[in-house]
Computed example of a mutant assay.
Amino acid sequence: MNLTALKETHGATEALPTPTQDDLPRRFGDFPTLIDALEYAALGARGVNFYSARGDLLVSARYADLRVRAEKIGRKLIAMGFAPGDRVALIAVTHVDFVAFFLGCQYATVLPVPLPLPTSFGGRDGYISQLHTQMESCRASAIIGPDAMDDFGKAASAGLGLKFCGSYEDFDALPVDLDGPFADSDGQPIRPMAGSLAYLQYSSGSTRFPHGIAITHKALMANCAGQGRDGVQLIDDDRCISWLPFYHDMGLVGTLLTPIANQVSVDFLATEDFARRPMQWLGLMSRNRGTITYSPSFGYDICARRVGNDQLKELDLSAWRVAGIGGDMIRPEVIRRFADIYGPAGFKPTTFVPSYGLAECTLR
């Protein structure tokens, strides 16, 4: 069953999230490429799950489902004339479509470039200008995003001569022959090597305008292996919960690509939904027995300030074993306040793990 069918047939009342445990032996990112990691994870039952602001399960997709869709996307990119090394800008919405297209680019040996969603700063014109500058700097051949942002993509791509500009849905609907010129003798897409580039990651732009960093498959797998094996020391009961954006390395690598490379199920809440209802993050940690999550200090601070006594009584955070904290200044008073408030719900102060990441300093 493809992911479109999953979205149409699995309502919030009947869908079940992918399991925390399965029988697939754990491998800690010891793969040549992200494709190899995905195909191994696809042998098990784990996968990704996307939740609404109200905490309802919207989409549940096994890594096996993602592999099937990603290969189809890759073959279509090849058939459309995308050459190895071409850049495909992806608006990094927290949705299964972004994940499938990011992985699909790997099957075509083209480079996905996650780009941010609009913020309240700069307005429409500022956002369009940022997208245009980033697409121009990475020499993008396409931009793909959610249907609701199609106008932004078209405005930002003016004058860039892209091969494709449209929504994820538009791309899926294209009637394209899947036999492409960059396939091997069996008609299969040419796969990347360990030393090939996997994607371009724009820096956060905290000290200057965001600039693109080229990440190889070898570097990515080394990062994922280090995080899973040595950083959080994954165990069979681990399940990741995240509201972090996919255009930031903490969200993209820490809570999406590392779980794929280490075969972990993940539950996602959109960043904008967390901003509106931050307690849904901890609600998912409690309900799904989440063990690993990451956040800048302000995420823990917001939840410490927003929780009510009735909400606190409903939470069970006793399974939580890694509370990664980083991405901004780690403030001791935030850690103490959060631990004090959520201690009665089973949260342990030793759960906090200082975390550090930098797009420019990915392991090589």
Rank of each mutant, 00 (worst) to 15 (best):
A45N: 11
E71W: 02
N49K: 04
A158D: 05
A194I: 08
V264H: 01
S185F: 10
Q188E: 14
R305S: 12
R87K: 14
G283S: 13
S129N: 10
D177F: 10
D179E: 07
I302N: 00
L197K: 05
Y168N: 04
P25Y: 05
T350E: 15
N262I: 11
F50S: 06
D328E: 15
L363Y: 08
G254S: 05
V96C: 02
C240E: 03
I292N: 05
V176K: 02
M193T: 10
M135P: 11
L38G: 04
M1C: 07
L131G: 10
Q263M: 04
D151K: 05
P344T: 04
T13Y: 04
F182T: 09
L252R: 01
Q188M: 12
G231I: 09
L117H: 00
G47N: 07
G161Q: 06
I235E: 13
A148D: 09
Q201R: 06
L317P: 12
R289W: 02
A64F: 05
P344K: 00
M193G: 09
P116E: 00
D238I: 12
G145I: 10
T119Y: 08
Q201F: 11
N309V: 08
T255G: 00
I325G: 02
A142W: 04
R289Q: 14
C240I: 14
S167M: 12
L160V: 07
V253W: 05
L315E: 03
D56A: 07
R321T: 11
R306L: 10
D172P: 06
S129H: 11
M329I: 10
A304I: 11
F274Q: 01
K348Y: 01
S137H: 10
V266P: 10
S265I: 12
V93N: 01
L58Q: 13
S141D: 01
G29M: 13
M193C: 03
I35A: 06
A222V: 10
W243V: 09
G55W: 08
G11P: 05
G166S: 05
I128L: 14
I302M: 06
L197T: 07
L6C: 07
Q227H: 07
A12W: 06
R364Y: 08
A12S: 12
F28R: 03
A261G: 08
G308P: 03
H132A: 15
S60H: 03
A155C: 01
I215W: 03
S137A: 15
Q130T: 13
S141V: 00
I241T: 14
Q227M: 15
D249S: 10
T4W: 05
T258H: 01
E14R: 01
Y199L: 10
A100R: 00
K163M: 15
F121I: 14
A198W: 02
F347A: 13
D170G: 02
F102S: 00
L6S: 09
P112A: 03
M1L: 09
V59M: 12
V68M: 11
G104H: 03
P114R: 00
F209M: 14
Y300T: 05
G212D: 01
V99I: 15
L317M: 11
D328A: 13
L282Y: 12
K154R: 12
Y202A: 14
D147K: 09
T94G: 00
R336E: 15
S242P: 15
A214M: 12
W281H: 09
Q188D: 13
Q227I: 15
N223Q: 14
R27T: 08
Y107H: 12
T255S: 09
T293S: 13
F209V: 14
S129G: 11
G161H: 06
